[in-house]
Measured scan of single mutants.
Amino acid sequence: TTIHVGDLTLKYDNPKKAYEIAKKLAKKYNLTVTIKNGKITVT
């Protein structure tokens, strides 16, 4: 599972963990989490 945050690309083997991290990042920086085709993007 890949999380895209701006220019950063973070890879995680565990999709659930990746989603949790994405949610935390989104909350911290007041951003939105988008999931599309298995890719998690924080914008």
Rank of each mutant, 00 (worst) to 15 (best):
I3L: 13
H4I: 14
T34P: 00
K28P: 00
D13Q: 07
V33S: 00
T9D: 07
Y12L: 05
K39Q: 15
T43D: 05
L8A: 03
T32S: 10
G38A: 06
K11C: 15
T2C: 12
N30V: 03
H4G: 04
E20A: 14
T2D: 05
Y29P: 00
K16D: 10
L8S: 03
Y12R: 01
L8R: 07
Y29A: 01
G6V: 06
A18Q: 01
N37D: 14
T32E: 07
K11G: 06
Y12S: 04
I35C: 10
K11T: 15
L8H: 07
T43I: 11
I3W: 01
G38M: 05
T32K: 10
A18N: 01
Y19G: 02
A22Q: 01
K36T: 13
K11Y: 15
N30Y: 06
L25Y: 03
K17D: 09
V33M: 11
N30C: 08
A22W: 09
N37A: 11
H4P: 02
K23R: 13
G38R: 06
T34D: 06
G6N: 04
T41P: 00
G6L: 11
V42Q: 01
T34W: 06
E20Y: 14
V5S: 04
A22R: 01
L8E: 03
A26G: 04
D13L: 09
D13M: 08
Y12W: 04
K24F: 15
E20Q: 14
T32R: 09
K23P: 00
G38P: 01
K23D: 05
D7H: 14
P15S: 09
V42M: 15
H4D: 06
I40S: 01
Y12D: 02
T1M: 13
I35D: 02
Y12T: 06
P15Q: 10
T32I: 14
L10T: 03
A26E: 02
T9A: 10
L31M: 11
K16V: 11
K17L: 14
L31G: 05
D13V: 06
N37S: 09
K39V: 15
G38Y: 07
D7G: 14
A26M: 05
N37I: 09
I21N: 04
I40G: 01
T43V: 11
T41I: 15
K23Y: 13
T43G: 13
Y19H: 06
D7V: 10
K17M: 14
Y19V: 07
T34H: 11
L10A: 03
K11L: 14
A18K: 01
A26I: 03
A22M: 07
K23Q: 13
K39G: 07
I3Q: 02
Y29E: 00
T9Y: 08
V33G: 00
V42T: 02
K16R: 12
Y19I: 11
N30G: 14
Y29T: 00
T1W: 14
A26P: 00
P15I: 13
V5P: 02
L25C: 03
A18L: 05
A22K: 00
P15R: 08
K28A: 07
I21K: 05
E20M: 14
I35A: 04
D13P: 09
D7L: 09
G38H: 07
A18V: 04
Y29M: 02
K28E: 06
I35M: 09
K24W: 15
T32P: 02
N30L: 05
A18T: 02
I21E: 06
Y19M: 14
N30P: 00
A18H: 01
T9K: 10
T43E: 11
E20T: 09
A22G: 02
V5A: 03
K39S: 14
L31F: 07
K28H: 07
D7K: 15
A26H: 02
